[in-house]
């Protein structure tokens, strides 16, 4: 049986206590929310933190405030399963509800949290392996080694952002609150991510992701999330397409944001595609084809997830097209 390494466990009872503990324990601590990402990594000895700081005893992280009209703030430990059953979320941000409902499997969504999914470690064929496996390849750039086996000449790590909710929250214009002992800061979700497989979050060690803020959608706004993976459950996204558009009179696109997940170390924004869509109609197949082509250009998959590389690039174009067609569908 795979077992966790030895560690001590801390259970702060308030947000100030949590941030104080984080500051005290230092870099050897890891935050434990649902544990569905961290604990497997620890069992594989990818991570061996000396201390785990449990978040489930911190009530502030479970707080929920606001609504679809004013905008909604969700505590970071809101469980993924709660989003699919949350009337406000399914009504106003269906793409988020959809993304959350496609993460892993039902038991993983029952304990996995929104904050945890946002902070999900980047993944890679050469990284998400046991210590014995990684030892047999001489480890890799992400930890304990000096070669990136995906791109052996590379000086950076190409591990892949594999969160379902991250590209959606980016597209929705959501923000997050990061709390530390010295205070709080609120940043747009895209700013949470760095384009690096190792340090993939801009969150400092002493910071905890406390809350996610969803801006109120305008009535003419639509959003969508499509997920590509080998199996219909359990698997991480090999590609996630999140798109939000605002349609004016006659279905003309007035605003658009498209983010792709699973194709880089952070959610990739397809800005050229979004710009191209402005003033055009999604019901026009040529527009959709061209936007999909432009969007797929930001997808720079490498051979470190499931499916062959070349195919994934083609699939990105196809899936963006499908996402846009779904947005165009009359409702």
């Amino acid at each position: 049986m795979m077992r966790l390494p030895r560690f001590r466990y801390l259970a702060p009872r308030t947000l100030p206590e949590l941030t104080a503990v984080l500051a005290d324990v230092g870099p050897d601590a890891a935050l434990l929310a649902g544990g569905t990402d961290l604990l497997p990594s620890m069992k594989r000895r990818q991570e061996t933190p000396a201390a785990l700081v449990g978040l489930r005893t911190v009530p502030e992280l479970r707080a929920r405030s606001g609504d679809a009209i004013a905008g909604l703030t969700l505590g970071a430990t809101t469980r993924l399963c709660e989003l699919a059953g949350d009337g406000a979320v399914t009504g106003a941000w269906p793409a988020l509800a959809r993304a959350a409902s496609l993460v892993g499997s039902p038991p993983l969504r029952n304990v996995g949290t929104l904050g945890g999914n946002l902070c999900l470690d980047t993944r890679c064929t050469y990284w998400n392996q046991t210590h014995a496996w990684r030892k047999s390849i001489g480890f890799c750039l992400k930890k304990d080694g000096d070669t990136c086996w995906v791109a052996p000449g590379s000086t950076r790590c190409w591990a892949v952002s594999s969160s379902d909710t991250a590209p959606v929250l980016c597209a929705l214009g959501a923000e997050v609150t990061l709390a530390s002992r010295t205070g709080e800061r609120r940043i747009p979700v895209p700013d949470l991510f760095a384009d690096d497989g190792i340090r993939h979050l801009t969150k400092a060690r002493g910071e905890v992701l406390a809350a996610i803020h969803l801006p109120s959608p305008r009535p003419d706004e639509r959003s969508v999330y499509l997920k590509l993976r080998r199996r219909e459950a359990i698997d991480f996204p090999v590609l996630g397409v999140a798109a939000r558009v605002r349609l004016g009179s006659g279905g003309v696109v007035e605003a658009a944001r498209i983010f792709l997940g699973g194709v880089g170390s952070r959610p990739q924004e397809a800005t050229a595609a979004a710009a191209f869509l402005l003033g055009r109609r999604l019901t026009d197949e040529e527009t959709v084809t061209e936007a999909a082509r432009l969007a797929a250009q930001v997808a720079k998959p490498l051979q470190n997830t499931d499916f062959a590389l070349g195919w994934r690039k083609g699939a990105a174009r196809e899936y963006v097209g499908r996402a846009l067609r779904e947005l165009a569908r009359p409702r």
Partner: peptide, 27 residues
């Protein structure tokens, strides 16, 4: 198999229930 000039490694690509794709109920 990793590039032979860099490594002699020859490893199972994904010895786990996640990477080895056994169809789920939905498949």
């Amino acid at each position: 198999r990793l590039p032979p000039r860099l490594s002699s490694a020859l490893v199972h690509r994904g010895p786990s229930m996640l990477d080895y794709k056994s169809p789920t109920s939905l498949d």
